[in-house]
Amino acid sequence: MAPRPTTSAVQEARAAFAARLREIRIEAGLTASDLAARAGWQRSKVSKIEHARQAPTVADVAAWCEHARATDQMPDLVASLHAVEGMWVEWRRLERSGLRRLQEASIPLFERTRSFRIYEVGVIPSLFQTVEYATARMRRIVEFSGVPDDVDQAVQARMDRQRIVRTGDRTFAVVLEEAALYARIGDTEMMASQLAWLITVAGLPSVSLGIIPRGIARTMWSTPGFWIYDDGRVGIETPTARITITQPREIAIYERTFTELSSMAVVGAPARRIITEAISALDC
């Protein structure tokens, strides 16, 4: 199955965590009133937490585990709580100080990652963008979102970040929908240059580029674009937020989705031919 819409993924993670706390309470033979009394809470707090209407704090989780005689589960629960809290970060907060800082913030993650699995529907991945393409993308973000205009510095930061493609022991498995090649965000010359550059980077030993043809019989529908960093993190960008997924169960779903999408993609000469056809179509 494909990942559901990202807002649903966050809500489901919160609900799953709440359900886990409820199971711990029930297994301990406690009613909601019992737990609330032992923890010194109002009974409604237990209900709100178990129905994901109130996010528990680390102290709440610690008290829950103590009174339910489940202290052995506390480290894993706290890690899960932090993962849920970190899934959703508003773009407005990230973009407040400009796009350059946003680009630089991801450098540590990119540098420590050894295996990138990238799926995009309608855009060339940032690691393979030309200066002109990246500038057009970021310029539109500034215009649309009204964030500080530091496009030139942000583009330079993105270009600096691209060094990881050619350095270190890393691999980049990339799957693009063919539609991404036709999403024109600039003039013909800029788009032709970008697509030609995509062919060039696809020839690097570290890069595997697959294109899902538009007319293929699909075994997996398209989803929002996502990046898998090694085996421990999935990143998704929406118009309003950056979502980070670290729960093993959900990561496994994205890994399965990426494998299925990859099985529909063509690579090597057939992929280069699709890109070349997209370049030719620019003159039409």
Rank of each mutant, 00 (worst) to 15 (best):
A79H: 09
E237C: 07
Q11N: 08
G146P: 08
P5E: 14
V155Y: 03
S106P: 03
A68S: 15
L81R: 05
Y229W: 12
G225F: 01
E177D: 12
E104W: 04
W91F: 12
T276G: 11
G232S: 14
Y133D: 00
I245A: 03
E277T: 07
Q247K: 11
V61F: 02
I216E: 09
D150L: 11
A32N: 09
E85P: 02
A16C: 06
I141K: 03
V46M: 14
E255P: 08
A252G: 08
Q247E: 15
E90C: 09
R20E: 15
R273V: 12
L30D: 01
A217Y: 00
A36Q: 00
E12S: 06
K45G: 03
F110V: 13
L261P: 04
F128P: 03
E66V: 10
A2R: 05
A157N: 08
R166V: 10
R69K: 12
D160R: 07
M159E: 02
I141G: 04
G232M: 09
Q247H: 10
A241K: 02
I236E: 03
A19D: 05
D231C: 12
E50P: 06
T200H: 06
P213E: 11
V234F: 05
R69G: 08
I275N: 07
A2W: 02
S115H: 14
I251N: 02
H82D: 15
I228L: 15
L127T: 02
A241I: 02
V10K: 02
T188E: 15
E178K: 05
T31D: 11
V151H: 01
V61C: 10
A265L: 11
E85A: 13
A265W: 01
R163F: 05
R43P: 01
R139E: 14
A217G: 05
T238N: 02
L30W: 03
G86C: 09
M220P: 06
R4N: 04
D76T: 11
E178P: 03
S80D: 14
Q156V: 00
E27M: 13
I251H: 04
V78W: 06
A55P: 00
M191R: 07
E177R: 01
D72E: 15
T171C: 11
Q194T: 04
